[in-house]
């Protein structure tokens, strides 16, 4: 709609406006707070594991900027995906499809927060980290949301990189660069993303099919997806243990992460084995639920062990 048309509509006889209905809570929902909490946590672990020191106030501001940047990506994602969010049961209550916030309002909100978080991070922490946050937002919004999500079943494989960047950003906030250790943290989340999302897609494939999103079960079929989930789980396990093998995590991490990874592979195997009926659905839900706990525990272990080492 052109600005002239919009003006005409707004200055019509009734002069009513469909916007301006969003509450503060609706705008907070646009930031995808649950995703944001994972971003904050993994970025924090990246910061704590990095060698060197960052003043606690600057570290706090850095984390806040990373969180706001992630939230801004979420708002821009909801702006662009409003049409398909209306169709899927999981997303139809989001503020835009629910009619509480207009797409234009979400766009302006997302752009403002993106710009603010990137500039503040650059000014307060360092410009490399600010640029990395800008790249992450662009990657999530342009590469994943606008391009990959609707065009290829590899959408969440490649797009998953956006969700895996936060520990690198946290690490770079302290050191000003990217290192092997931060790349390992990136790889853990990057390789964890496909089995996590495909488990969800297995029991929500009807939603994705209705919305026309080419998720792996919709395009390649459930059988192929189950095999790929198992393959990713098997490849992920040694990557998760590698911080111990490379010497930047201790034996406690090595032992516990091996056990947690074994459970993850076992649950993925269960998904691969059970292919019919309610048992198949339950296996996928169990893998999806455990995957969230698994990633949280891996990063919590890395953090806990690091804090203990610092104290001793």
């Amino acid at each position: 709609m052109s600005l002239a048309e919009r003006h005409e509509m707004m200055t019509g006889q009734d002069a009513t406006w469909e916007g301006g209905m969003g509450s503060v809570g609706d705008y907070i929902a646009l930031l995808k707070p649950r995703v944001m909490s994972l971003v904050i946590f993994t970025a924090f672990v990246g910061m704590m594991l990095a060698p060197g020191q960052l003043h606690p106030v600057l570290a706090g501001v850095g984390l806040l900027c990373i969180a706001i940047g992630a939230g801004a990506s979420g708002a821009l994602n909801m702006w662009y995906d409003a049409d398909i969010d209306r169709i899927m049961s999981r997303t139809k209550k989001r503020p835009i499809p629910a009619g509480k916030i207009t797409p234009d309002e979400a766009l302006v909100f997302g752009l403002t927060l993106s710009l603010g978080s990137v500039l503040t991070l650059g000014l307060v922490v360092n410009w490399f980290t600010g640029a990395f946050l800008a790249f992450t937002i662009l990657f999530y919004v342009v590469i994943y949301t606008m391009w990959l999500k609707r065009s290829t079943p590899q959408n969440i494989v490649i797009g998953g990189a956006a969700g895996a960047f936060p520990p690198i950003i946290g690490w770079a906030a302290v050191t000003g660069n990217v290192s092997l250790e931060s790349l390992i943290l990136f790889l853990i989340i990057f390789m964890w993303t496909p089995p996590h999302f495909w488990a969800l897609a297995l029991f929500k494939s009807g939603d994705y099919r209705a919305a026309g999103i080419p998720m792996m079960p919709v395009v390649a079929g459930e059988s192929s997806t189950r095999t790929q989930i198992l393959a990713y789980a098997v490849i992920l396990a040694p990557i998760v243990v590698s911080p111990y093998l490379l010497g930047f995590a201790g034996p406690v991490y090595g032992g516990v992460s091996s056990a947690l990874s074994a459970v993850f592979v076992a649950l993925a195997f269960n998904v691969w084995r059970k292919r019919e009926g309610d048992a198949a659905r339950k296996a996928a839900i169990r893998l999806f639920s455990y995957s969230i706990l698994y990633l949280f525990l891996i990063f919590a272990l890395l953090l806990g062990e690091n804090l203990l080492t610092r104290m001793v």
Binding site: M10, T11, D14, A15, T16, W17, G20, M21, G22, S23, V24, Y27
Partner: peptide, 17 residues
């Protein structure tokens, strides 16, 4: 006066924002 007239609900939401 052809300006947009906000409803009470819109005014309340604007105030909280």
């Amino acid at each position: 006066d052809d300006r947009v007239k906000l409803t009470e609900k819109q005014k309340q939401a604007r105030r909280s924002r």
